[in-house]
Amino acid sequence: MRYLVSVIHDRPGLATPEEDAAIDVFNDRLQAEGHWVFAGGLASPDAATVIDNRGGEAMVTDGPFLESKEYLIGFWIIKAADLDVALKLAAEGSRACNRKVEVRPFL
C-alpha cells in the first residue's frame, strides 16, 4: 500500500539547516526499512503555472490553482502495510521537517 505524505507549509521561511539534517536522517531510515518510494521539496506556489487543455487550446495561467496561506511545500511517497504504520512514519516525518503533514492513500 502506498501513501502520499504531503508537507503543509503554514508559516513564512524555508527549512532551517537543522530541519534539513533531520529530514536527511528520516529519509535514510525510510530507505533502510524499505518504506521509501520517492520524496521531494517544492518551490513556492509563486513559481506555479496552471495549464488547462480541456478545450483544445491550452490555457496558461500564472500562479497556483488555489491561493491559500497553507500550501504544499514537499512530500514523501511511502510504502506501508497499513494506515497505522503510515501514521507512525508520518508522525516522525512531521517532527523531522517541523511541519504538519497530511497522509492520503493511493487508489
Binding site: 500500500m1 502495510a81 497499513d82 494506515l83 497505522d84 497522509v103 492520503r104 492513500p105 487508489l107
Partner: peptide, 14 residues
C-alpha cells in the same frame, strides 16, 4: 477501506 485502517489489536506500546 481506502486508507487501509488495520483490523487488529494495536501493538503493546500503542
Amino acid at each position: 477501506k481506502a486508507a487501509r485502517i488495520p483490523y487488529r489489536v494495536p501493538s503493546a506500546e500503542d
